[in-house]
Nucleic acid binder design. Structure first.
Length: 619
RNA sequence: GGUCCCGUGGUGUAGCCUGGCCAAACACGCGGCCCUGUCAAGGCCGAGAACGCCGGUUCGAAUCCGGUCGGGACCGCCA
């Protein structure tokens, strides 16, 4: 037994599925620490790894019972583990006892089955199964653990409600697709570690309990027991710490970091994210960009065996907003947006002209072959536009026809390159709103008309970006974050035309998913203070919140920059799902609840007392 | 902070717009019996939901109205 176990341990250490034939007789009794025998399935072969090469071999398998097909005489089951599933046959004449036990098997029972691997009788192979050429004819069967009927079918095409899947996540995660996701995620992170190490980056862990900042995203707070009334904040990102590591002279830092942001969720947002966090000294944006391009090459090669060709294309952020209506464009389909504000400056269509007169814009999009869109479909599109806050949506040919001159119609159709039979959607609104709405419509049209070329990997760098943006109230705020360096040649615009100042910031977008973003940082105290001031922060505030960083900048600071790649979103893009919860093992709902654990939950009064916290009743 | 969609047996849906024919239909699953080559096994039989919750309108509500809870999508927000 010892011999078999040792061979297998070595096998386990050297990795996954490539070690057929390495295992011994499998399973069996080992001696435990207290001297009594116990069954170990750790050394047993995997259900999903049995192949025709194992023919004639006696194996002991451990797994979960999938479907049972009981013919009265013969009984078939699919025995499943993480590696896949294999068919086990129970024959009443050869092994009456095993057959009797098999008669009482139900879905999701955990069993141990012993038997001989054999080829299936000619004609009964199952080409849809990886192990479909073979089967195991059972001689022994033991039920290790019985199971209640699960609340939903454990298979890939289960259509159970997501809330139910989250409540029973441990069952949901039994589905082959979810197990493949977990394994793929592991391989992505492993490739990242390898790559960063090979480029002489050092992984440093940063604290989870930080100082809160009212800037940026809302903090998750942790009350301090020893300091009544004071709170720690959980990291939104290790941003300042990684910059300080550069001041410390580390040169190249990375971390697979957990970050928490207390914001409202979306299909592509979770509360707790994992990011590959990177910072490096004496670098330019070109260094960071080519480093990350190399990372994608390595990850795609390691995980999917796909070659990515670099350098990747780049797109100016303002151009992206104009042409695609978003700063994370999906370039797997064309559908470009056009601005027709100038062409309509004097139009007789009052809705359009008045929007322009109020400083807005008119943007449009051609729907290929869209003249056959039904009134109902158009109403649905209008509802999307309205839901996004647009004043309205119109189309051409459509309700505005009698107000538009022939020249205007022709100019619009030319601007969007509309073909005969195309419908043109028009939105007139404030610039930012028009962009958002057109971006949503563009995506919706692509989905409905199936214009997305699945299977393509469309990477693009959004670069340059801009240092400042206008917030909802029309106030100036930062585009990326307040530590981002302006372009040196745009310095003179800082005071008077801040919105035109380009930032040394870059986002990497894949198939419409933002998979990384970063910048070259400011490393001069004076410039950093100036940017804070332009952002409207008071001296006191700057000192209180960023004093440590500014102080550090007085002790010899290397120029530095970095990037962070959200692994959850990267996984989303790689596994082509548009639901981020599908790539997280234990995700929370849109309202931040863990339906399995029942978190968040009230706590004992004693715990609150210890933390000096009094609960204010909800009004 | 806001807009929209959804909530019917264990699961997924139909019914809801146009209230009574719905103590509610279908499929899967579940239970029993039959069946020695199936793999979404098959055949026969069977059990299982007063329709998220509260209130209102009505002679009468799964169906209409209001509120509430839960899930989801989106705008804002997410440095």
């Amino acid at each position: 037994m010892g011999g078999a176990a040792q061979r297998c341990r070595r096998g386990a250490a050297c990795g996954a599925a490539e070690r057929h034939g390495e295992w011994g007789t499998g399973g069996g009794f080992l001696e435990g620490p207290s001297g009594e025998a116990f069954v170990s399935g750790f050394v047993a072969p995997h259900c999903g790894s049995i192949t025709a090469a194992d023919e004639g071999r006696e194996v002991e398998l451990y797994g979960w019972v999938g479907r049972r097909r009981d013919h009265g005489g013969l009984i078939f089951i699919d025995l499943r583990d993480r590696w896949g599933a294999v068919q086990i046959v129970f024959n009443p004449t050869n092994a009456p006892q095993a057959h009797a036990v098999a008669s009482d098997l139900r879905s999701e029972y955990v069993v141990r089955a012993k038997g001989v691997v054999g080829r299936r009788p000619a004609g009964s192979e199952n080409p849809r199964m990886a192990t479909g050429e073979v089967e195991v004819t059972a001689s022994e069967l033991e039920v290790i653990s019985s199971a209640k009927t699960p609340p939903f079918q454990i298979d890939d095409d289960t259509d159970a409600d997501e809330a139910l899947r989250l409540k029973y996540r441990y069952l949901d995660l039994r589905r082959p697709r979810m197990q493949q996701m977990l394994e793929m995620r592991h391989r992505v992170v492993k490739a990242m570690h390898r790559y960063m190490d090979a480029h002489e980056f050092v992984e440093v862990e940063t604290p989870m309990l930080l100082r809160g900042t009212p800037e940026g995203s809302r903090d998750f707070l942790v009350p301090s027991r020893l300091h009544p009334g004071s709170f720690f904040a959980l990291p939104q990102s290790p941003q300042q710490l990684k910059q300080l590591l550069m001041v410390a002279g580390l040169g190249r830092y990375y971390q697979i970091a957990r970050c928490l942001r207390d914001e409202d969720l979306r299909a592509d947002r979770v509360v707790e994210i994992t990011q590959l966090d990177v910072e490096m000294s004496f670098c330019t944006e070109e260094d960071v960009i080519s480093l990350i391009e190399g990372l994608w090459v390595q990850v795609w090669k390691d995980v999917m065996g796909v070659d990515i060709s670099t350098p990747l294309p780049r797109l100016d952020m303002q151009e992206s907003l104009l042409r695609f209506g978003t700063d994370k464009p999906d370039l797997r389909y064309e559908l470009e947006i056009a601005d027709v504000s100038e062409q309509l400056r004097a139009t007789g269509a009052t809705v359009l002209r008045s929007a322009l007169e109020q400083g807005g814009v008119v943007r449009c999009l051609a729907v290929p072959g869209g003249s056959n869109l039904s009134r109902r479909e158009l109403d649905e599109l209008a509802l999307i536009a309205k839901g996004a806050g647009a004043k309205g949506l119109t189309w051409m040919p459509g309700p505005l026809d009698k107000f538009l001159t022939e020249g205007e119609v022709a100019a619009i159709r030319t601007a969007v390159r509309a073909q005969a039979g195309d419908l043109v959607l028009l939105v007139a609104d404030r610039r930012r709103k028009a962009e958002t709405v057109m971006g949503l419509l563009r995506r919706e049209i692509a989905r409905r008309r199936k214009l997305i070329r699945e299977g393509e990997w469309k990477f693009v760098w959004i670069y340059p970006m801009y240092l400042f943006e206008e917030d909802d109230q029309g106030n100036l705020t930062y585009g990326h974050h307040p530590f981002t360096s302006p372009w040196p040649e745009d310095m003179h615009l800082l005071q008077d035309r801040p919105y035109q100042v380009r930032a040394r910031a870059y986002d990497c977008v894949l198939n419409g998913v933002e998979i990384a973003g970063g910048s070259i940082r400011i490393h001069e105290r004076a410039l950093q203070e100036r940017v804070f001031e332009i952002l409207g922060l008071s001296r006191e505030k700057i000192h209180a919140q960023f004093g440590h960083l500014l102080d550090a900048f007085e002790y010899g600071v290397p120029p530095h920059g970095g990037i962070a790649s959200g692994i959850d979103r990267l996984m989303m893009a790689m596994s082509r799902t548009d639901n981020i919860r599908d790539v997280v093992a234990f995700p929370k709902t849109q309202s931040h609840q863990d339906l399995m654990l029942g978190a968040p939950s009230p706590v004992d009064q004693a715990q609150l007392d210890e933390l000096h916290i009094a609960i204010k009743p909800v009004t």
